[in-house]
């Protein structure tokens, strides 16, 4: 327990010292929020059922943070730790690999949460965004979405032989996901064919769930999203444990 706490604290400090990861989870989504606010104005949009674009943007950008933190930051940290022999060094101590992984999950989760909180605060203060859902529901959906997504990063780091290939793989996966999941713009405006592809993208389910919970929709109307995300979580944790390598 003591080693897990120390490790998580250390990883949190390292996360914040790494400009790229801190930027993509904490600053980059805020920039997008302001861009949306500036471009789309505050008019209610019929496409979003009368919600303003800026209000839809917050859960969508939260999904972007989850994707960035889970895929980019997690993958790069773990792949770098392996390639540079940092895991090798840890292996010479009595610390269990579980502690290493759990600390990484805790830190990525807390940073992602921090990213979302920053979005909400900025949205409220600058654009007067309305929140019509339940805070605990939103947090539960956020937790499910984050944890099910983070395992992808660990799996990538486990199966890719080097940091460079892991980085390329993460980029190749993350960009189409961001574009086609509805995280950046509504899937509803895309042609039906592309909308079909969208349903094969894991991030889509996070976007749907978070948007719904944000506007106060009940869980019962998102059973499919929940089922997919729970499935991903179970499968992801299993695969991540299987693909874990010290070196």
């Amino acid at each position: 327990m003591k080693s897990l706490l120390k490790m998580s604290w250390m990883e949190a400090k390292l996360f914040l010292r790494e400009p790229a990861s801190a930027f993509f989870t904490l600053v980059f989504p805020l920039i997008y929020l302001f861009l949306y606010g500036a471009i789309s104005g505050n008019e209610p949009t019929p496409m979003y059922g009368g919600q303003r674009t800026i209000e839809v943007a917050i859960p969508s950008l939260t999904a972007v943070i989850i994707a960035m933190a889970g895929l980019m930051s997690n993958t790069m940290t773990m792949a770098t730790y392996r390639e540079k022999g940092i895991l090798r060094r840890l292996r010479t101590t009595p610390v269990s690999p579980l502690v290493v992984l759990v600390a990484q999950v805790i830190v990525t989760f807390v940073m992602t949460l921090l990213g979302m909180v920053l979005l909400v605060v900025a949205g409220r203060l600058v654009f007067g965004v309305r929140f019509t859902g339940n805070v605990f529901s939103l947090l539960a959906g956020f937790t499910l979405g984050s944890l099910s997504f983070f395992s992808i990063g660990f799996i990538l780091a486990g199966i890719m032989p080097t940091v460079r290939t892991a980085w390329v793989a993460a980029m190749v996966i993350v960009y189409p996901m961001l574009l086609l999941s509805g995280a950046f713009f509504a899937v509803e405006v895309l042609p039906p064919f592309v909308q079909k592809i969208s349903s094969f993208i894991p991030l889509t389910y996070i976007v749907n769930l978070l948007r719904g919970l944000w506007s106060g929709e009940p869980w019962s109307s998102h059973l499919r999203d929940v089922a997919v995300l729970v499935g991903m979580l179970v499968l992801g944790v299993g695969l991540a444990a299987k693909t874990f390598r010290w070196e």
Binding site: K6, M7, M10, L14, E18, G85, R88, T93
Partner: peptide, 19 residues
């Protein structure tokens, strides 16, 4: 072997001592 680039000397010792 290596340690993370941005880990400070005292932090490494403090962390490993916890193990």
């Amino acid at each position: 072997s290596n340690l993370p680039d941005r880990m400070k000397v005292w932090e490494a010792l403090d962390l490993y001592a916890a193990f």
